[in-house]
Every structure is written in C-alpha cells, then in structure tokens.
Simulated scan of single mutants.
Amino acid sequence: MATTDPSGLDIDVSDLSSERAAAWFRQTPVRRDFSRLDDADFGTWPDGFELAGRWLGLRAYHRGCYRGAIAARIHRDGTADVLPPSCHGRFDPQLATALLEHAATQLGVRRVQLAISYLPIDATAIHACARSVRFQRTGDLLVLTRSVGGDDVSPQLGDWTFEPCALGERDDLPAVLQRTLIGSRDFPNLPQVGSIQAMLERFAEVGLGDDRMWYLARYRRNLAGCLLMTARGDCQIGELLYFGLVPEYRGRGGGRCMVRYALDTAGDRGLPAVIAGVDAENDPAIAIYASMGFDPVSRRGVFFRRLATGGDVSPYAT
C-alpha cells in the first residue's frame, strides 16, 4: 500500500510476517550509528536480528528516489515498538518527523493503542522530532548484562523456591503478575493498555518464545512473585524479561534470589550471559542487579504516544 503526504513524500507501507520482515530489513538501508547523525554510515540489519512476530514497515520515496525508512513491531497487547527513523544520506529532521508521524498513523489504523520508541540517549535531534509529533518521554531504559559462571557471591535461595508456570498451564500466573505490578517503579508513568493475559502473550513473543523458562516464586510455600525469562535467538543469551514480587513479600531478599535463579537457569541451558532492562530511576532494582554482578551496557530514552483506537488523528491520515 502506498500513501502520499503533503510534502510530496510517497510512503510504501508493508504489513510483514517474521519471514517477510527478514527480507524487508535485508533490502532496506538503515543507519548503524544513531549517535552520529551527520555521518552517512549505512548498512543492512544483521541476519540474526530478532524478527519474530508481526511487523509494519514503511519506506519513504521522493520523486522515485529512496529517502528513508521506519519499522515497528506490533504486539498482541495493543502496543508497538517503533524503531528509530532512518534517513538515507544526512539526517533530515523533516523526513524523520514525517516517518514517525506516518508510523503512528498506520499503527493507529491497525488498532494499536500505544506506540513506544527506545531512542539512543545521545540522539537529541531524533528526540526533538519525536516530541514534535506528540511522543512523550517517560524515562530511560538501562540495559545491563552479566556473564554466567565465574566468581559468585550470590545468595543461597533459602526459603525461596521456584516452580515452572508456562503460559496457559497455570491459572494463578496472571493474578500473581497483576499483584506484582502494584507500586512498580518501572516506568510508572507509561500508560498500561491491554489485559494481563495480553501482556503475558507479548512476553511470550520475545526471543525464542520459550515460556518453559517462566517460574512462580514461593516464599515458605506462599506465592510471592514471578520470574519470566527467555533465550534470544539473535545472540544466544538469556534475557530476564520480568521479575516482580507481590507487596507483602518485598524486602525479604526475594529479588536477589530471583536473579540468582535466573543465572542458574541460564547456566543449566548453556547460555553464556543474561541481559536485562530496567527503568534507570528504579534504584532498588538497579541495586539488586549491581549486587549480582551486572554491568550497564547501554541506555535509551523511552518515548511513547497514545493512539486512537482504529486510527490516529493525523494530518497524514488516509
């Protein structure tokens, strides 16, 4: 499908399965280094880039010449992750802004309720473009990692035990997850859309979609939280998707025990490292990761935009 905006850009819009997305990314020039916006350093997405799920791809042309592209991964819970816009040649704020606006419009048409974009912390020009089309910054995502094995000063599990809870096998998982979100310090201002079940289904889409690495946590036999992990197909490492405790069992060392169990699980599966993301303002969680030997590797600004159900109000709507 193609649309034209008031500036004369022709936008080619593609709905993509994971298989078609792989081909789309291989054929679409994209910028490698978003922190150097005056440098025309382009390549193609690596073959191992995580492409599972449903994608939306947009390419921009002007008078038949390729100008840039943007893509978004659509999740089942009514959210979509929007990749940073890429301009062919030097960075063009007008083009980047148009790509973000078109992406938001097309996502709204597809009944996505919330668009989220994780933008490089130093790419202030892209931040300005996002704000100009009603994306709001809600904080920063801190990405941390730790290798598995080696010297270990981690706690013993003690009174904490873990039991598998693959999606659909345990009726109590959604209720436990819901309670762990009470008072959460991970992006508290980010709007919540969709049901808890849809949230779990989104977690199941990440990486290899292996929900056999999902666990309920018990403290002295009482349900106290949940731990959700996966293995990433792009780099063969473990990813700690989520861990949380219900309010009455916080402050008993459960967070460190959960991370300990995540590292043990990764080691048992032969994964060399574990990666995790956390709100950069979530000091308690960051302290847990630091005490368990995790090191920060990157930081990104988290921007979001609410979209109207069934179509976003936009000057570019078609």
Rank of each mutant, 00 (worst) to 15 (best):
V176W: 01
V176N: 02
V176M: 08
L177S: 03
Q178L: 14
R179Y: 04
R179V: 02
T180Y: 00
T180G: 06
T180I: 07
T180D: 06
L181F: 13
I182D: 08
I182V: 14
G183I: 05
G183H: 10
S184K: 07
R185S: 09
R185F: 02
D186E: 14
P191H: 09
Q192V: 14
Q192N: 12
G194K: 06
S195P: 03
S195I: 06
I196G: 07
A198Q: 10
A198N: 07
A198K: 06
A198W: 01
E201G: 05
E205P: 04
E205S: 15
E205L: 11
V206I: 15
G207E: 09
G207H: 06
L208Y: 06
D210V: 06
D210F: 05
D211C: 11
D211W: 03
R212N: 14
R212H: 14
W214I: 11
W214H: 06
Y215P: 00
Y215K: 08
A217F: 03
R220L: 07
R220W: 04
R221M: 12
N222T: 10
L223Y: 05
C226N: 10
C226S: 11
L227Y: 02
L227C: 04
L227P: 00
L228D: 01
T230C: 06
T230N: 05
T230M: 01
T230L: 02
A231K: 01
R232K: 09
G233I: 00
G233P: 00
D234I: 08
D234N: 13
C235N: 11
C235F: 08
C235A: 13
C235P: 01
Q236S: 14
Q236L: 11
I237Q: 10
E239K: 05
E239G: 03
L240V: 05
Y242D: 06
G244L: 05
G244Y: 01
L245I: 11
V246K: 00
P247D: 05
R250G: 04
G251S: 10
G251E: 11
G253I: 04
G253Y: 03
G253M: 11
G253V: 13
G254K: 02
G255D: 04
C257H: 03
C257G: 07
C257V: 11
V259D: 04
R260W: 03
R260M: 09
A262I: 00
L263C: 07
L263H: 03
D264M: 13
T265H: 05
A266E: 01
G267Q: 04
G267W: 08
D268N: 12
G270I: 10
L271P: 00
P272V: 08
V274L: 13
I275K: 07
A276I: 14
A276C: 14
G277V: 02
G277R: 00
A280G: 12
E281W: 07
D283W: 13
D283E: 15
D283V: 14
P284M: 12
A285Q: 05
I286Q: 13
I288Y: 00
I288A: 04
Y289T: 11
Y289N: 05
A290D: 15
